[in-house]
Design a protein around this nucleic acid. Structure first.
Length: 359
RNA sequence: GUGGGUAUAGCUCAGUUGGUUAGAGCGUCAGGUUGUGGCCCUGAAGGCCGUGGGUUCGAGUCCCAUUACUCACCCCA
């Protein structure tokens, strides 16, 4: 985490994620006393003092949703559906949903024991980092990237085999609801998530092609958290998605389309008089709702036409001394090159002509 | 925190075993006759070669340091 002292020597820490803050807000503002379930969302910036790499910045933005006061697997299913629909709406394809259950304080300690027992027997073959993980965070060995560790982990005891009856039923309830709404998933016993406060359901949407940081959205149930930070017993489940990483996934997929929209009208003005008139006409048409531009750098007509083409203007109006005295000018459709006469004193009709033909 | 890679024009990049005024493509700007874009042609502008040391007659090129960027490890909330 980013921790530093200010001028008074007071220690500050920048938030690394959102869930704990939301839980704190629920406790501090007594939201647990209201109607349940409680559904919240947030969009925040967060900071982590890790070395940046693809899909990971030291400052990043996170979107998240939390649901409090519902223990039923129906809540887990609803939240996963929300995340699923959210990704779909953004056009992010190529994601797979991985789910797992890591049990509760009743059954997890037993599992952890068995896991440490298993890995300790093969300690010699584990990579260096995993040997130390055996002490600090044995669950993490399960998603080590080293091929040897991965091979060893394949036969490791699985969380789902150690679930108590309540947890087992809960997990089954979630799976049948996901099937009911046709959301594809795979049970991935290696999804563990990092924090101790997680209970039962954990899940990740994983995307391919965006680098090593491939989890595009992740979350889980944290039934003990609110109580742990001083609130009442209140169950909770949520997910969060890094907005920068979502953008990355949108770019590598085909979801991201750059807009090449130009203004509705460019007024090519020849000479000082015309330039003044053009500015006035621009303002008038702008008030009517037309996106309108004119020359600001004193270019020749030809150069102005080139410019109008480059900025992808839908129409160009050619304005010189002759047009000003006659009161009418040529309006050119840049798509097909067709030109029509328009009445300069009637901004309304210019507006209509541009709008009608600009379909 | 650890390791690798990169740094040259606005952008993407060339630049030989160290050798004279550092290049290309794209972009920008201006022209290609008198008031009309896209294609094409011509020309111009634009570089402390990331920064600071060192080696050398001579450094974009070699060495050291430093900074930034980047990828991976780590971590993953």
């Amino acid at each position: 985490m980013y921790t530093f002292a200010d001028r008074d020597g007071t220690s500050y820490t920048l938030r690394p994620e959102g869930t704990a803050s939301v839980a704190r807000a629920v406790v501090e503002n007594g939201l647990f006393g209201g109607t349940m379930p409680l559904k919240l969302f947030y969009i925040i910036n967060c900071f982590r003092h890790e070395r940046p790499q693809a899909g990971r910045y030291r400052e990043f933005y996170q979107f998240g949703a939390e649901l409090f006061g519902a223990e039923s697997p129906a809540a887990d299913a609803e939240l996963i559906m929300l995340a699923h629909d959210f990704l779909k709406a953004l056009g992010i394809g190529n994601t797979t949903l991985h789910i797992n259950s890591i049990g509760c304080p009743k059954c997890r300690p037993h599992y952890k024991e068995e896991l440490v027992k298993y890995f300790s027997l093969k300690k010699e073959r584990l990579c260096n980092t995993c040997q130390s993980r055996l002490e600090t965070n044995p669950l993490r060995i399960l998603d080590c990237k080293s091929p040897i560790c991965r091979e060893i982990a394949e036969n490791a005891p699985k969380t789902v085999d150690f679930l108590c009856d309540d947890c087992k039923n809960h997990f089954e309830g979630l799976k049948s609801r996901l099937k009911e709404v046709n959301i594809g998933f795979q049970v991935d016993v290696n999804i563990v998530r990092g924090l101790d406060y997680y209970t039962r359901t954990v899940f990740e949407f994983i995307s391919t092609g965006i680098g090593a940081q491939s989890t595009v959205c992740g979350g889980g149930r944290y039934d003990g958290l609110v109580h742990q930070i001083g609130g009442p017993e209140l169950s909770g489940i949520g997910f969060a998605a890094g907005i920068n990483r979502l953008a990355l996934a949108m770019e590598t997929g085909s979801a991201y389309v750059e807009s090449d929209e130009g203004p509705d009208l460019y007024i090519a003005a020849i000479g000082e008089n015309a330039s003044i008139k053009a500015a006035g006409l621009c303002a008038k048409l702008g008030e009517l709702g037309l996106v309108c531009e004119t020359d600001l750098v004193g270019r020749s007509l030809k150069a102005q036409m080139k410019y109008a083409n480059k900025i992808n203007s839908a129409f160009t109006l050619i304005l010189g001394d002759g047009e000003i005295s006659s009161g009418s000018a040529q309006l050119r459709n840049m798509k097909d090159g067709q030109q029509t006469d328009v009445d300069l004193s009637n901004a309304e009709s210019i507006f209509k002509t541009v709008k009608r033909e600009d379909v």
